[in-house]
Nucleic acid binder design. Structure first.
Lengths: 351, 351
DNA sequence: CTGTTAGCGCTTTCAT
DNA sequence: ATGAAAGCGCTAACAG
């Protein structure tokens, strides 16, 4: 079933068939009818490979994400898929499991596929070798979640948000605020959030504590152990800032395991705003990223750039708004806390 | 950067270049070296569109799933992605949000894209119009999660598993077991699980109760309201079988909202086995589907069929094993339950 | 407004 | 074992 068959059936040239499908306005209505009728009768579908070969455009977007096991990325992909479909594009996704080698391989495969552009979330935008390659290949691309001054990104200011969160916790009377994160080396977002935490703690004159845990496995046990060990110590945390919601949900469980009530004994805050956080008890207090919107915007930027043939630059980066979901997992620190107001002999300079 | 450029650089014919990439054994080692060197030097990548046009194969698999917001499907897609990559295929996913019209559109777009085969999960395999079309188009396809005698499927026997679950609950002393489901009309899996429930209840001589709730929105409120209303009635459920884990997690919250302890006052069981269920407190007791494996197997079946050019038939369907994850959300019914042992005047025939 | 023509880059007979 | 040549189905000049 080719364009030739349709042209014979309709009694016109192949070029006319093509025009009917690609620039209908340039064909006389009568012929257009005939062509549509013939195409329908034969069940004709344009062959995309042939079109792509000819036009050098595939109307497909490559997508590279760390994993779909984290609802954040699943939601983002959903947003990407919706926007792409709306714009007449297909998507071709690959996951990397946070492994650099997989990032490179995915990008290579996608380039070979001839996708028109790429959307990607890399482990570390500053260190990524993939991006240089994309630039060299002149493939339009946009980063999601990653933030970097020299690349086009659709992201959020996680650093500032975490700083604000620390301030909020401090205002609730918390002095011992722990940060729990997955391996900092594995994600530049985690690093940024950690910096935000450090900044917030410094501003409040508090002493930062970091607990790095294995992200996918054994995180609950590690947190429970940590919380149990410090339970009776003066510097026992009364609040925990988790680098992401998956960790925060496990922290909720870890707290229960060691007999701490949330939020009465321990406040727990997350980052991401995955839908399931709202179904926890207590509902997770968290910084909400607009993941679907991030996906959507990244597609829109790319489609727009593709349409205008204007190369996407770092200057087109967008920072989307974050908001805090109140939830039920943070509360005022108890006055009767085991932690005294001035537990640290030095360094204390609370304004 | 075409095959021609490489052929000139290497001083051989284009055909040889092609052979080096597609049938290396048919080319003398010396030439093979030269070609590889030339290709590397020029950074040559075979153009997939051209290859597809010529060979009529795209090495791409279309994937149609209801949504990525449900971790079950996100996990499955992850499995599909991994297996596809391993087999040298790309995937092109579409989501339908359980809407029939979207199923059709997705399939059409995928067919137009010329994917070599399709993996899909439809709302209702028996009523689907898409499948007939695929068959007509002679596109290989396999259903995931759906079960149907006339289509190739990779699925599980949810019905039997739920029947067994009811028996288990009965053995724990439960007599009033409620089933909570999303709209039954929206999913043949939900219907099968419900049938399993009915069968289990009938076998135990118990009276079934079904609560259909809006799946995505307001489910928690609806369940809380239901549980609160029956709290003091003799037929108050002591156990709830949820049609999926997302519902079960919300049920956990609904129970807390109305002051029921899980599992002491109310046992809650789910279906799906999403990873997050294990992070709940209490950890969700649930029937675990091997979602990643389902994805993987579906790819393998297709790739195998594609390689052998043997059409995939309903006879190739596979039923994967389900297992029960004990969790912490079910327990023996309390002897002091508000529900008497013989609450129902008729129908009582417990052995 | 419509038809003719010439490839897009690759694979694959068919010769050699 | 290698090369020459044809063509997959489509679109885009270019004529008319």
């Amino acid at each position: 079933m080719t364009i030739r068959d349709v042209s014979q059936e309709a009694g016109v040239s192949p070029a006319t068939i093509s025009r009917v499908f690609n620039a209908p306005d340039t064909v006389r209505p009568e012929l257009r009818q005939r062509v549509h009728a013939a195409a329908a009768a034969l069940g004709y579908r344009p062959n995309i490979s042939a079109r792509s070969l000819r036009t050098q455009r595939t109307r497909a977007l490559g997508v590279v994400l760390p994993t779909l096991a984290n609802p954040v990325f699943a939601e983002c992909l959903q947003g990407i898929a919706q926007a792409a479909t709306a714009a007449g594009y297909s998507i071709v996704p690959f996951t990397t499991d946070y492994q650099l080698a997989h990032e490179t391989r995915a990008a290579n495969l996608l380039l070979a596929r001839g996708v028109d552009a790429l959307i990607l979330c890399v482990a570390n935008a500053a260190r990524s070798t993939v991006l240089a390659r994309l630039r060299a290949a002149k493939s339009p691309y946009v980063l999601v979640y990653n933030r970097h001054a020299r690349h086009p990104c659709v992201s959020v200011d996680g650093r500032a948000a975490v700083t604000a969160l620390v301030a909020r916790l401090q205002a609730l009377g918390h002095r011992h605020i722990l940060m729990v994160s997955g391996a900092l080396a594995a994600s530049d977002r985690a690093q940024q959030r950690h910096r935000g935490y450090l900044q917030g703690m410094a501003a409040a004159g508090l002493k930062p504590q970091l607990l790095e845990v294995p992200f996918m496995d054994g995180a609950t046990e590690r947190m429970a152990q940590y919380l149990a060990a410090r339970r009776v110590m003066p510097q026992a945390p009364t609040a925990v800032v988790c680098s992401n919601d998956l960790l925060a949900i496990r922290c909720l469980r870890a707290a229960r395991q060691v007999g701490l009530r949330v939020p009465e004994d321990l406040s727990v805050a997350g980052f991401d705003g995955i839908a399931l956080g709202d179904d926890m008890t207590p509902a997770l207090s968290t910084i909400v990223q607009p993941s679907i919107e991030i996906g959507r915007r990244s597609v829109e930027l790319l489609v727009q750039a593709l349409a205008g043939a204007a190369p996407l630059r770092a200057g087109h980066s967008e920072t989307l708004a974050l908001h805090f979901r109140e939830g039920e997992s943070i509360a005022r620190a108890r006055a009767t806390s085991a932690a005294p107001t001035q537990p640290l002999p030095r360094r204390r300079t609370t304004p």
